[in-house]
């Protein structure tokens, strides 16, 4: 009896704790959204009240029509999506090879990749822009996508190695007896087993590339190729700052990610756990 009561208290405590955390987690987002519908006059009134007295769409009109944020979002989508696909393909092939074919060399390679991952982007931005300039890929989305591989592949490969280690080798042996070649085995037997890991890695990659800022700033010149993170930053750098527009733009950047999270969180949850090497 005693234990049951204690358990009830614990459950109640958990609800309280989670409610507080949830409020803290969501409050800034709510605040941005609510502010984005306020007129500038109201937003800059002090003291600030949370709820707007009247709603305005002015900020959103400016964000989409004048600043063409829709275009920037499209760029971010293209770049993030392409980098994610490439990352997953390269890292999955690589991780499988590391686990199955080249364990010694693979270990060295993974360590090298991690080491490179530890260098700050600020330091790498300059050599990358030089290299891209030489091959004529500066100020192109393709160039940016390639550079994004530099930080997403190490991360992805590292996680995926763990997942591939969980694949029982017997299954592959059975398939190879049936006459399948290595690539067929990889695609039809191995990949389905590590699918949750692949999805998790894809999601991490997508988020990291979606929020990336410095490379995008240094490597892209044209406004019509800029990603949202840079477009947002440049709003803040204006001599005449417009708080309302900034709030609307922030909302526009965050909301898709939140929706994305809601849709895929089932998959993230399947993520690292299965793959961590035990």
């Amino acid at each position: 009896m005693h234990g049951l009561k204690k358990n009830k208290v614990r459950v109640a405590g958990s609800y309280i704790y989670l409610t507080i955390l949830a409020l803290l987690a969501v409050f800034p987002l709510l605040w941005i959204i609510v502010s984005s519908f306020k007129s500038n006059n109201e937003m800059n009134k002090f003291p600030t009240s949370f709820f707007p007295k009247e709603l305005t769409m002015r900020n959103y009109n400016l964000v989409f029509e004048e600043l063409k944020f829709g275009n920037n979002m499209l760029n971010s989508l293209i770049v993030s999506f392409a980098s994610t696909v490439l990352t997953v393909v390269i890292a999955a092939l690589g991780a499988y090879a590391v686990v199955r074919f080249f364990p010694k060399f693979g270990k060295l390679l993974t360590q090298g990749l991690i080491l490179a991952y530890m260098l700050p982007t600020i330091l790498l931005a300059v050599p990358y822009s030089i290299t891209l300039g030489q091959v004529g890929l500066l100020n192109t989305r393709i160039g940016l996508i390639i550079i994004y591989l530099s930080f997403s592949v190490p991360y992805a490969l590292w996680l995926l190695v763990g997942f591939f280690k969980t694949v029982p080798i017997q299954i592959e042996e059975a398939a190879s007896v049936d006459g399948a070649n290595k690539f067929q085995i990889f695609v039809t037997v191995v990949l389905p087993i590590v699918a949750p890991g692949i999805v998790a890695v894809a999601i991490y990659t997508f988020i990291n590339t979606w929020n990336e800022f410095l490379y995008s700033l240094v490597l892209i010149n044209s406004r019509d190729k800029m990603t949202v993170a840079v477009a947002l930053q440049s709003l803040q750098g204006q001599e005449i700052l417009d708080w309302g527009v900034m709030m609307a733009a922030s909302t526009v950047v965050v909301i898709p990610s939140v929706i994305f999270f809601m849709c895929i969180q089932k998959f993230i949850a399947g993520g690292l756990a299965a793959g961590s090497d035990k």
């Binding site: 300039g133 240094v218 406004r223």
Partner: peptide
Amino acid sequence: MTIETFSWADFYTKWTTGLASKN
């Protein structure tokens, strides 16, 4: 003419790194 615009702070980052990469 190709016009490209940056805020002042970004512009500084652009041309300093740009000099190295001839951009």
